[in-house]
C-alpha cells in the first residue's frame, strides 16, 4: 500500500489505482469547485469530461481519472 497526500492529509492508495479512485475510496467525492462555485466530482471516469481535475504535484488541471497514484504524490482538490 502506498499513500498520497490529499489536501495535506495522508490517505492510503493501492498501487495501480488512479488518483480519482483513491480519492473516492477515501470518501472524497468533490474534486473541484466549478466556475459558479458548485462542488463537482468524476462523471465519465475516462478522461473525457474533465470534472475530476485536481492539482497533482503542483500542476493544476490534471485529470484524476487518468493519473495513476504514486507514493507521496501531493494532490490538491478544489483549488
Amino acid at each position: 500500500m502506498t499513500a498520497i497526500i490529499v489536501d495535506g492529509r495522508s490517505i492510503p492508495a493501492e498501487p495501480g489505482t488512479t488518483v480519482a479512485a483513491a480519492l473516492l475510496n477515501a470518501g472524497i467525492w468533490s474534486f473541484r469547485t466549478s466556475v459558479s462555485g458548485e462542488p463537482r466530482g468524476p462523471l465519465c471516469g475516462m478522461g473525457i469530461c474533465h470534472e475530476c481535475r485536481v492539482t497533482i504535484d503542483g500542476v493544476a488541471h490534471r485529470r484524476g481519472c487518468l493519473e495513476p497514484v504514486a507514493d507521496q504524490m501531493v494532490v490538491v482538490t478544489n483549488a
Partner: peptide, 11 residues
C-alpha cells in the same frame, strides 16, 4: 460507463 471505469480503476 463512468461508474464501471472508476470501479475498474480501483474505486
Amino acid at each position: 460507463g463512468g461508474a464501471q471505469a472508476l470501479l475498474k480503476s480501483g474505486a
